[in-house]
Structures are given as structure tokens and as C-alpha cells.
Simulated assay, not measured.
Amino acid sequence: MDADRLIAWDAELRGAHARLRAALAATREALDTGADVPAAASDLALFCIGFCTALDGHHRAEDSSLFPALRAEHPELGGMIDKLMQDHSLLAHLLGALRLAVETGEDADSLARHLDGIGAIMESHFRFEEREILEPLRALVLDAEVPAVLGPL
């Protein structure tokens, strides 16, 4: 195993969060540039699908790979990890509602409300996660590829 991999999970998580924040910003921009125009609506659908897939994939990977490894090395973090996983479930529900809103052609104001809700929960979740688990991640021993642990970002 590459020794650098042993100390890189905190930086990898921050990088994943930065890319997801950028994906949300690009989705908002697609909405702001005219989701009422058919071509822009198509662009918005692509951004939403991409963003939803990326965020959901990130959380599924954390739930299946990162969090079990973190819990094994730091059982005292179990309650905090449970809360993070609850956030993942809530965000999955919100992402499903956004996908449905895009697919059914809801108006720009409705889509903006969906994005606002997701953005608020996502940002709160990311900040909590970064505050609470970056330190333990610095020493996490996990022999896995980044996409398996943090999603295909």
C-alpha cells in the first residue's frame, strides 16, 4: 500500500466536498440562465441528474466503505457516524424529489426551492462532517481506491 494513501483521506474528503459544491453551483447557474427555455431546461436536467448522481454516489460510498472503516478504528464515533448516515438518507429523499421535479417540468421557482433545501442540508452536513471526522481520517488505514470510498467524483 502506498504510504501517502494512509494520510490522504481527509484531503480526499475535502476535495470531494469541493467538487460537489461546484456541481451544485453549476446546477444553480443552469437554472438561473433560463430553465423556462426548452434548451436550458434540457441543460438543467443534465446538471441535476449529474449533481444528484454524484452526491448520492458519494454518500453511498461513504456508507458502505468509509464509515465502516472509520467506525472500526474509532468506535467512539459511532453516534456521530449514525447522524451522518441519517443526513445521507434525508439528502437521498430530497434528491429524489428534485429529480421528480425536473422530470415533471416544474417551474424555475419550484426547482430553486428544491436546490435551496438540498444546498442548505448539504452544506450543514459537509461542515459537520469536516469538523468531526477530518482528524480521525488523517490516520485512517483503509486500503481502497478513492472512488470506492468517496464515490466516482
Results as ranks from 00 to 15, higher is better:
residue 1 M to F: 13
residue 4 D to K: 08
residue 6 L to H: 12
residue 10 D to F: 11
residue 12 E to P: 07
residue 15 G to L: 14
residue 17 H to C: 04
residue 19 R to M: 13
residue 24 L to W: 10
residue 25 A to R: 04
residue 25 A to V: 06
residue 29 E to P: 11
residue 32 D to S: 12
residue 34 G to D: 06
residue 35 A to N: 06
residue 38 P to I: 13
residue 44 L to I: 05
residue 45 A to N: 03
residue 48 C to Q: 01
residue 51 F to R: 03
residue 52 C to L: 00
residue 52 C to V: 07
residue 62 E to C: 02
residue 63 D to C: 04
residue 64 S to E: 15
residue 66 L to G: 03
residue 66 L to F: 06
residue 68 P to M: 04
residue 68 P to N: 01
residue 73 E to R: 09
residue 75 P to V: 00
residue 76 E to V: 09
residue 76 E to S: 11
residue 78 G to A: 13
residue 83 K to N: 05
residue 86 Q to F: 08
residue 87 D to T: 07
residue 89 S to E: 12
residue 91 L to I: 15
residue 93 H to Q: 12
residue 93 H to G: 05
residue 93 H to S: 12
residue 99 R to P: 03
residue 100 L to Q: 09
residue 102 V to Q: 07
residue 107 D to L: 08
residue 107 D to Q: 10
residue 117 G to H: 07
residue 117 G to S: 13
residue 118 I to Y: 06
residue 119 G to H: 01
residue 119 G to A: 02
residue 121 I to K: 05
residue 122 M to F: 14
residue 128 F to E: 14
residue 130 E to A: 08
residue 132 E to D: 13
residue 133 I to T: 03
residue 135 E to R: 12
residue 141 V to S: 10
residue 142 L to S: 08
residue 148 A to F: 02
residue 149 V to F: 07
residue 150 L to M: 00
residue 150 L to C: 01
